[in-house]
Simulated scan of single mutants.
Amino acid sequence: MDQDRIEGNWTQIKGKLREIYGDLSDDDIEEARGEREQMIGKLQAKVGKDKDEVRRDVDNILAGF
């Protein structure tokens, strides 16, 4: 997914991230705004899941847009 599409759909993407990772704060999500790899790293550190599992979750979310 290209950067423009991520930015354009950021509000919806944030909502989906919160559905899957309820422990995330708005600040956690905003720190990774639009940067896929940074988002994956932040999620992995916050929730303690395997990087591949987090990457699949993020890719599934982004594929919907």
Rank of each mutant, 00 (worst) to 15 (best):
M1K: 02
M1S: 15
D2G: 14
D2Y: 10
Q3V: 14
Q3I: 13
Q3K: 10
D4M: 15
D4H: 10
I6T: 09
I6R: 03
I6V: 15
I6D: 01
E7F: 10
G8I: 11
G8S: 12
G8C: 06
G8Q: 09
W10Y: 10
W10V: 13
T11N: 10
T11S: 13
T11L: 12
Q12R: 14
Q12S: 05
I13Q: 01
I13R: 07
I13S: 01
K14A: 08
K14P: 07
K16V: 07
L17S: 01
R18D: 12
E19I: 04
I20K: 11
I20M: 11
I20N: 11
I20E: 14
Y21P: 03
Y21M: 08
Y21F: 15
Y21H: 04
Y21S: 02
D23P: 00
D23A: 08
L24T: 07
L24P: 07
S25C: 04
S25G: 08
S25K: 01
D26Y: 00
D27Y: 00
D28E: 04
D28Y: 08
D28I: 04
D28T: 04
I29V: 06
I29R: 07
E30G: 02
E31H: 05
E31N: 01
E31T: 04
A32S: 01
A32T: 02
A32L: 05
R33C: 01
R33A: 05
R33I: 04
R36L: 05
R36A: 11
R36S: 05
E37K: 11
Q38C: 00
Q38Y: 15
Q38N: 00
Q38I: 04
M39R: 06
M39Y: 08
M39D: 01
G41H: 03
G41Q: 15
G41N: 08
G41D: 09
G41F: 02
K42S: 01
K42V: 00
K42P: 00
Q44C: 06
A45L: 10
K46M: 10
K46R: 09
K46V: 00
V47A: 05
V47P: 02
G48E: 04
K49T: 04
K49S: 08
K49L: 13
K49H: 01
K49M: 13
D50N: 11
D50K: 10
K51L: 07
K51Y: 06
K51T: 00
K51V: 07
K51W: 02
K51F: 07
D52V: 05
E53V: 14
E53R: 09
E53Q: 08
E53D: 12
E53Y: 07
V54M: 09
V54C: 15
R55T: 07
R55Y: 07
R56T: 13
R56K: 15
D57M: 14
D57C: 12
V58D: 09
D59L: 08
D59K: 05
D59T: 06
D59W: 01
D59M: 09
N60P: 11
I61L: 13
L62D: 03
A63V: 03
A63D: 14
A63W: 02
A63T: 03
A63N: 13
A63F: 06
A63M: 10
G64P: 00
G64N: 01
G64C: 00
F65D: 06
F65E: 09
F65R: 03
F65L: 05
F65Q: 05
F65Y: 09
F65P: 00
